[in-house]
Each structure stands twice: as C-alpha cells, then as structure tokens.
Design a binder for these strands. Sequence first.
DNA 1: TGGATGCTTCGATTACGGTCGAACTATGAA
DNA 2: TTCATAGTTCGACCGTAATCGAAGCATCCA
Lengths: 222, 222
Amino acid sequence: MKDGPDIARIAALIGDPARANMLTALMSGKALTATELAREAGVTAQTASSHLGKLHAGGLIEERRQGRHKYVSLANDDISRVLEALMGVAAGAGHLRTRTGPRDDALRHARVCYNHLAGHRGTQMYDGLIAGGHLVNGTLTDKGAALVTDLGVDLAALAAQRAPLCRDCLDWSERRTHLAGSLGRALLARFIEAGWARRDAHSRAIHFTPKGVEGFEAAFCG
Amino acid sequence: MKDGPDIARIAALIGDPARANMLTALMSGKALTATELAREAGVTAQTASSHLGKLHAGGLIEERRQGRHKYVSLANDDISRVLEALMGVAAGAGHLRTRTGPRDDALRHARVCYNHLAGHRGTQMYDGLIAGGHLVNGTLTDKGAALVTDLGVDLAALAAQRAPLCRDCLDWSERRTHLAGSLGRALLARFIEAGWARRDAHSRAIHFTPKGVEGFEAAFCG
DNA sequence: TGGATGCTTCGATTACGGTCGAACTATGAA
DNA sequence: TTCATAGTTCGACCGTAATCGAAGCATCCA
C-alpha cells in the first residue's frame, strides 16, 4: 500500500527550521553564500555548513565555488515546486498565523518563485497564455512562439537547452498554476531587462512599473 | 528574506518515516483505521496513536469515529498535492532508487491521487479537456459542462458543495498537471461506477477495462 | 456478564540530530 | 609576509522525539 518514492528523506530535510529558512531564502532565485544563509537561518557558520552539506547530499541545492565564497542555489524547479506547495498548506490548513502584513500583500501580488513569476501576476500570465491560444496542451503554439519572440525571448537559445520549455508550478497564494520551465524563467528575465518590473532587494516581491503594467496587460490580458 | 508561511512545521510532520508511510497509504483515498495505519507504518498501535495525534493537530488528516474504530483520511486536496510534489522530487533528484517494478509501471500509467485520477491517464484527461475547449482558464465551459454531464456527473450537486470545482494537481510521474477538485473526484467516481475502471485492492493503481479505454479515449482524446 | 478487540495514556528508555566552541584550511587583501 | 575573511572539521553537549511495555477505557459480540 505504501507504494511510490520515499518522501520522508526529502521532507525531513525541509523539516528542520534552520534548513527551511535557508530554502525559503533561496526561493528568491538569488545565489547566496554560506554565511548569508547562516544569517538567514539564525545559526552559526558551523551549523550552516553542516546543513548545507545535508541539503547538497539530498540533491536539494547546488553549490558553486567562486574564490573563497560558496554560492548556493536551489537544485532545480522541482524543489521550488515542493516549497511552494508546502507554503500553500502552511498558509491554509496550518495555523492561520498569516498576519497579512503589507509585505505579504506585495508577495501575493507578484513574486519570484526561484526563477519565474508567481503570485497574482503569475497566474494571470498563465491564464492569458492559454486563453489566447499561445499555450495549448503544455506546449507553445506557433502563435505563442510569435508572442514571446516579440517580447524579446530568444526561443532558439531556450530550445538548445536541455531543460523543458514549459512547466507547471502551483502557487501558494493563488492556489492556481503558473508558468515555470525555461520559458517562465526567460519571460521574467525579459520583464526585468525591459524595465517592466524590478525585484525587491530584501524579499521575493516583484514590483511592476506603470510601463510594465501596460505592456504586461496588452500582451497577456488582450 | 525568509518571507512566506512557515513550512518547517508541515515538512517535519511528513519527515518522519512512520508518518510518511501512513500518509502515503492514505493517498489511496481510502479511509484507513488506526491499526491498519500502524501496520502500514511498521510500528505498534501506541506509537501510531501518537503519530496520528500529531498529524491531526497539524491539520494534515481528518479523523472520524465509527464505533470502536477510528477512520483516518487526508484532510484535503492540498495535502495530496504536497505529497505528490514530494514524490516527484524523491523519485527524480533523490536517489534513483526507483527500481521500476511491474507494480510501479501500473502506478505510472494510472493511479488514484487521494480522490482523483493521476498518472498518464490523468494528464491525458487534463490535456484533452483543455484541447477540446472544455476547460478554459481554470473553469469549465458550457461545452465542458455538457461533456461531463454526459458522462453522468451531477454538476448541480457539485456546485452546491463548498469545495472548488476545478483544481490543478502536479503529477510525480508525469511531472505535468492533472485535474483535482470536486470535479476530478466526481469523474473518477463515475469511471468506476460505469465499469470503465477498477481500483487495485492493494495499491493506488487503477486498471482500465477495454470498454473503459474506449469510452475514455472517445471522450478526452477526440 | 465475560471476553475480545480497537484505541489511548503514561512512563521510561533510547537514539538521533541540531547546536556551538575551538581549532584548522584556503582564499584574498594590504 | 601578515592579517582578515570564508568555510570546514572535530568533539562534546543537549534536547527532543520516536519507540514500546504496561495499564486503562470504550465498544462490540457471544
């Protein structure tokens, strides 16, 4: 009866408060150093090192050395999906400790989910792509390819990558699907390059500029 | 930086092997008694009782007393979504301990995800509903309502419920979206009532009958 | 009413894992 | 070279939580 993969190993890794804080911090998509993560988690550098070792062994994070720094990021999109799904349960069924502060509102509106757009804007974009016939059956149509190329995404470069172009990701605030995958990543990158949006320095929030709102809604809410 | 809901509490609950086994067993959608779950988890009745108390306090399960029995089931769809997502990570990024046995193949092809259809058939149905214009933007169209009514689903009864009609759920084997929500639940129930499919007694697998394959593909792969 | 079964509570044990101080290595800057 | 910073390793400590035996209720059945 207890078929399927062994989930306890992964869940236990996320289940420690210090590690959970580290992973949550990494959901910003930025690669953080070991000491930065130690500060986020509220532990000393030694314990952080131990935790990072376990997360790495468990395949949850990637490490990249640069000089005397160790830059850490989430291993892949799957991890971010689990974290978002967990946030959904923790926010809902869990204690309603969601004292919705002003910062929380910003997160619900638009935030970065590891490397792609989430929150209200994220699901809005996803719905728009489907309603407009750009995304059908989990794949990009010719019409959709034209749209994203128009927005400045280099589809040829994405196709050359090994990562899948379109992936679904569940939103903890909206409880709906938004777009992940290499295309989701590329689109968010374009929004920022084009001055449509900028990332908050201290949180996962994303702030859209007036010009960005206009362009975004023209493209996806048409 | 570590914004968002506190995920460690939930993850720690899932992170214990005994509890993880119980939750995985509950993914079959059947309500199981405390002793059955103790056997699944490989622990004595006392420890199982302790674990169930914690899962209940954490909002992960629901308990229903019937005579001297205590029937346990998952609290809601959100929980099943987290479990499926975790399985995705455990199967992929985790150790490739997926010694794909014959039983595993059946699971990948079609299985029950708490109360709705998952696996290849599940994503196939989801894709079919969208491609056919039955499901747009996360809501059922008139055309879609006609289709499911035709299949024997009582939409009026579902609308009266508080639970949302259509929800997305991520598939650990397909890594794509399938349909959850009260409609997903009702459709699976209809398949079984109509003799299209039957549930395996000892696993989460679902076996389609020849008649069921025919009807299913006519409805969703049209 | 007596006995069996399902579940819970209590208490004691045990083990695992998180934590930090201290010492060590490696990289970069002055 | 010398010093400072980033990260790791080792060892010891400590707390928590999982576990089970024993006993206690509640329910069902004969």
